[in-house]
Design a protein around this nucleic acid. Sequence first.
DNA 1: ATCCTCCCCTAC
DNA 2: TAAGGTAGGGGAGGAT
Length: 784
Amino acid sequence: MSGRDIERNYETEREVKTRRKREQEEWARHGGYMNAKIQKLINKYDSDKSRENHESQSKLFENVAIFVNGYTEPSFDVLRNYMIEGGGRFEHYYSATRVTHIVATSLALSKQKLFADKKVVLPSWITDSVKKNSLQPYEKYLLLKRNKITNFFTSRESAPWTGSDVIDPSEINDVADAPQSSTFKELYSSTTEDLPGTTIQEEQSKKGGKSTALNMLSADQPGFVAEFYGNSRLHHLSEWRTQLKDLVNEIRADPEHRLTGRDHLVHKYLDSSKPSSSSLTLELSSHNKSTSSVYMHIDMDCFFVSVVLRQHPELKDRPVVVAHSKGDVPGNQPYSSMSQIASCNYVARQAGVKNGMMMGKALSLCPDLQVLPYDFDGYSEVSRTLYRTVASYTTEIEAVSCDELYVDITSLLSIGTYDQLAQEMRQDIRSRTGCPCSAGMGGNLLLARLATRSAKPDGQYYVSPQDVLDFVSKHQVNDLPGVGRVTSRLLEKQKVETCAQLQAFSLAKLKDKFGAKTGESLYKLCRGQDDRQLRPDQPRQSVSCDVNYGIRLTDAHQVELLFENIAAEVSKKLRNARLLSKQVTLKLKVRSADAPTQSAKFMGHGICDNMSKSSSLKHPTDGAVLIKTVCLNIWRGWNILPSDLRGVGIQMTKLQQVQACTRRDKQTDLLNFVGKGKTNATDISPTKPVAIVISDDEDDGDKKQILDTNLPSVTPEVPALCGYSRLEDVSDVLNRWVVAERGRLAMFTLSTFLNSPVDLYQKEFNNLFYVEKKNYCISSDKLK
DNA sequence: ATCCTCCCCTAC
DNA sequence: TAAGGTAGGGGAGGAT
Ligand SMILES: Nc1ccn([C@H]2C[C@H](O)[C@@H](COP(=O)(O)OP(=O)(O)OP(=O)(O)O)O2)c(=O)n1
Ligand SMILES: [Mg+2]
Ligand SMILES: [Mg+2]
């Protein structure tokens, strides 16, 4: 079954509407709502200030101004009262100039970067200062130390979560005005996706400006990818997954890392009269090779909802979902919203609502649905706290996603029982994050994973060896990891719905039907067997960027701009990971010949044909210009109408780690290149200083990128510069040599490379010194 | 056999 | 309106 057929089964027919006026009204309404919200915050601030004036006796927090970031214990409100009563200031918005201290117990990675050189302190700085009635030195309470989070997890003193603070209920979306009628007529089984006709979406993305009232960037504009990614839950999910894998690797590699959670368990459950012997001997005795491993799988309950419900406890018994839009614009068809539900709580699940469901369908199942907006920073913070909490028990962890991980608990079982272990860890997670989670345990990854399903919500479950067959037989084949929509539909055709039924199939038959590996894996999984090991640090095999939303272009030039945008994004990712790649794959979504130009989902990709083609590079690269050029070559070989383009992905494979190259390599490479690529190479000698520079003539002439140099005065410092470097990291060095060598520098411009043989052009992007940032000008002799 | 390219499938 | 990303497993079929 092709992807296209599948989409047809769930994309809906949609009545085409002209409704610009309504959109404008909605925009105004929304603006009005936002304005009211801001006014409310201003009022709140003013009242804080007046309280400050009236109760001006205490000077405890004089000259202190705090900003509270994210979830804290004690709560936002309590901290605010302490500040105000202590004569300090409490800022509702972060401002580097006004705020003296940021208060947080955990930070999203993005915030860690933002606050890198700021005073970020634990809430206990405030509470301790209040307790002792004197301002404590903040240094003892820093959350960020040497670029990593330490303090919070080196002590177990933090109070348990009390979880009863309401912050600002005005942020809740309007409630419960969904229509009561039930004229929902099978929106989700239509076979034609859309009606042809009006071209609202096209008009919105006509070249040039920000289209229409909604300020959506057109796909050829510079900020388009960043804006889309900023709003894409799926992008965040993927980004966090890689960041959490990195976090696990960092923790595992950190010799300073302490197992404070584990120590606490040892203290609590093992005889504390002989404390000196406990930890070390246990470590050894637990390495009992004959015992097989036991795994725990931990997964947060309705993650996105739980995180935002901390601020809205009054909604916890009502059906709640997190999504971008409720689609309740006056004049829209009821139950027609195509906005996806990222997560729904268990009350909503009672009504049949599911993660990933369209809002329209969910509202038809549950008209009372409460829709809350995303809080991406909140999810990131909770994720990292979850991982650090688990890592305080053991570092035998495999990251699965932002709300989910596998843990090898074999050695921890010498401290306590399954139940004790899970209770302790879950309680710890809950008190640190304010969110519930569930845990499953079993003799392999499959059993642990399935056990979590039985455990949910807010529970735990252990599958003991004698129960395995019974336990797994009861499950639907659908529940098996790796068995999704297509596979279970294929099995359904064979009258197989449960694992018990699947067990009747012979290994040979399964291999024949599904292929060697898949067949064998199905054969084992339905019997509760699973060979997979925990794989904490698997090297990355690909790096990619995809955008399959919001693409409505009209001409080839716009396509080039979009490719440039996406190529820049993959390049950034490669450099971030310090990887170089030898193969580029371009993936496109192209509107199917018979598909309407307007998709079912606003600005969605609609019914598409997928195309992909890869191109191997002679030399590994991370350069955006090269990647873009290669992709455009592939694109030109296909003759696709720009207006039919609906999605673009660039995937980089055949990866290798950047290695700092030696001075000798560097000079050889560079001189080889210059010697071969340039007709007039007689000026080049090993002593002649050379820099390779991209000079983009369409930009103003000052913007140059330095790709490489063999400057003798730089080479002692080259190990620090080459391979991968950012201007921020190397600007000192750069400044020194640019000034010193001014006027002596030979320069090549990009056109030099474009006229070079292809392999030289690629070589130029080889793992050499590369300065990312523009606005960097050097003056020099031009090479004749 | 084993590898490669172009897909498809799955999970969060 | 809506934000349909991304990495890894693996199969089919051709090249070696
Ligand atoms: N189709 C999906 C599935 C998940 N997610 C996001 C939101 C979820 O909260 C988070 C974690 O996914 P889970 O599968 O763990 O689902 P939940 O945590 O929401 O619920 P559960 O209690 O079943 O784990 O990933 C999403 O955006 N879209
Ligand atoms: Mg979950
Ligand atoms: Mg999960």
